[in-house]
Design a protein around this nucleic acid. Sequence first.
DNA 1: CGGTATCCTAGGAGATACTG
DNA 2: CAGTATCTCCTAGGATACCG
Lengths: 127, 127
Amino acid sequence: MGMETQVLPARLPADLSDGVFPAGCPSRTVLDHITSKWGVLILLSLSEGEQRWSDLRRRAEGISEKMLAQTLKTLERDGLVLRKSQPVIPPRVDYSLTDRGYELSALLIPLVAWAYNNADEILNGER
Amino acid sequence: MGMETQVLPARLPADLSDGVFPAGCPSRTVLDHITSKWGVLILLSLSEGEQRWSDLRRRAEGISEKMLAQTLKTLERDGLVLRKSQPVIPPRVDYSLTDRGYELSALLIPLVAWAYNNADEILNGER
DNA sequence: CGGTATCCTAGGAGATACTG
DNA sequence: CAGTATCTCCTAGGATACCG
């Protein structure tokens, strides 16, 4: 895990290839979670390793406490993020990716890298 | 293009690896476009080939006309979708992906496939 | 430090009606 | 067929204050 590369499918699953996917499809919900504005940034940030609340707040620049809490809860419920709380004073809580979270982040990284590399051309209309 | 697979980076660009990315970063805007609820579905649908307005309306089940128009305009402005309008009656307009759009859809497909394959486990909390 | 609770509002998004 | 135009509703999300 880490430096190696991945081989990925270039087509959709067969059952999706005709109608994209239906309105009530559970994958829509999941897709909404993992492509949410802050969800992507949190997952990406955690792909670099375990981090604390305040780390995440700083790294996902611009996020509010409310959105950080909400996003982390959703990702935790989805089994993508692991929360480890230590009963010390001052409190210490560490967040990290689960195995499933790592799997996902590996798919997100190329996407974010692409957005990063193409952002200027896209927004400035360069060819 | 089509059936072959892709090799993708497993890490972020070096300049992103410390702080995710800054609040005003253009890539945030691009990321918002391409990970938008309907944007993903439209790009995915068009990855199957050229389609008309009414095709897209049907395939991205649940989308309103307003959102379809808005999403298509954004994607067109971003140089991801090509709009070909024929001055006939009744009007005929075909939408397709640009090269850049195809590039992007190739990154989106694994993500959507993953969401599809993991949706039930994620939402029902199965291990 | 690591969060809740509360209030508030811009704009995301649906429904309906109309048009070249 | 392929869209606009309006109206309205609603919630994602920011600001602020407070708590164990």
